[in-house]
Write a protein that binds this DNA or RNA. Sequence first.
DNA 1: TCTGGGGTCCTAGGACCC
DNA 2: TCTGGGGTCCTAGGACCC
Length: 424
Amino acid sequence: MFALVDCNNFYASCERVFNPALRLRPVVVLSNNDGCIIARSEEAKSLGIQMGMPEFKCRPILKTHDVAVFSSNFALYGDMSSRVMMTLATLAPEIEVYSIDEAFLDMSGFTRFDLMEYGRLIRRTVRQHTGIPVCVGMAPTKTLAKMANRLAKKNPEYQGICVIRSHAEILSVLERTRVEDIWGIGRQLSKLLLEKQIESAADLAAAPAAWVRKHLHIVGARIQAELQGKSCLPMELVRPAKQSICTSRSFGRSVTSLEELQQAVATFAAKCAVKLRKENALASLLTVFIATSPFDNSCERYWGTRTASLPCPTNDTIAILRAAQTMLDGIFLAGRSYKKAGVLVSGIIPKTVCSTTLSLFAEAAAVPNERDKKIMQLLDAINNRYGSGAVRLAAENSESWKPHQERLSARYTTRWDEILEVKV
DNA sequence: TCTGGGGTCCTAGGACCC
DNA sequence: TCTGGGGTCCTAGGACCC
């Protein structure tokens, strides 16, 4: 048995934990740059505010119903997430942190337990330790546990818990779930399935296996097996090493000059280097991209991107930043209004493996030496202690392109100086 | 005026190896 | 004229997830 524990309206719930006045108000949280709605409390959902809606389009509703609107505060959500996960880790022998607000628990040893009762314990404990409401779904496969969780969320009479175990229970849940609501079936696959009159999860479970293998490939075949109660997605207890790391932002305003783009790209390159060092890894490929707005029809859309291999795998801020600047020169076109840029590092290798492999062109490529490594260590140490951005390269500058973040709440759990702030 | 960010896996096809 | 079998690596594109 697997349990899927999923936080309810996670970002909105985080805002409420530290600001109890919000309990009586609908709450929404915006994406970066205060662009789209990415989280809604139940009250906000029932006002008809859709996930992913641009904020400016629902401004009238937000205003009329006195909705509390927040910029996204990832320092807060990330820390709250780890509190929830730490609590969950005490409630099961194995836990897989699946996303910022979800975790699978291994329930296979709980055969003698009343799982409903245990689900209530999980909910109560997480609520008590963190203030975050969660729902719990339990079933013999991960896909079915996801489905159970969804039912627990959708039907108030379940009181946040849904356990499916017997063959009859599985069948009943499959019949009540449409294909597009199955974990792993997105828009394209739903379309294909609906054309074939496969409309419910029960239909998919009963579809000919060869057809599923052919049209939905291996991923679909696994989903089908899971729906039939055959578990083929095991618990993943350690997070696999990252294969790519991306830092990108939409700009608060349009940016036209190369100089401003350089400042943005420098900032993103430096962020990628920090993330690489946190992963204890080196990157061998670097991608830089810049883009105009996809929504601005008054001018031609431009998406400039370039990828190059680094002379020598590295996580050195200065080396990555230099390479990124050169690549930016190659894709920059004057006379455009840029709205977004980003830096992506890939070809990632663990530091331990690579430290012995030298580039053929090592001498020419200015391999990061001991001194550079020491500088990076100091940089990280200072920023860890005094806050990210306390020390940075002069090339990093967000003056001109800084994203909007006008409704940011306090970082209640990670900053002493903000702990008493409550903005409503 | 205003529209997010960060990932993964799979497949197909080409180039290449023995 | 006839031309096998079994692989790897890389990339682009498509699909999905939160």
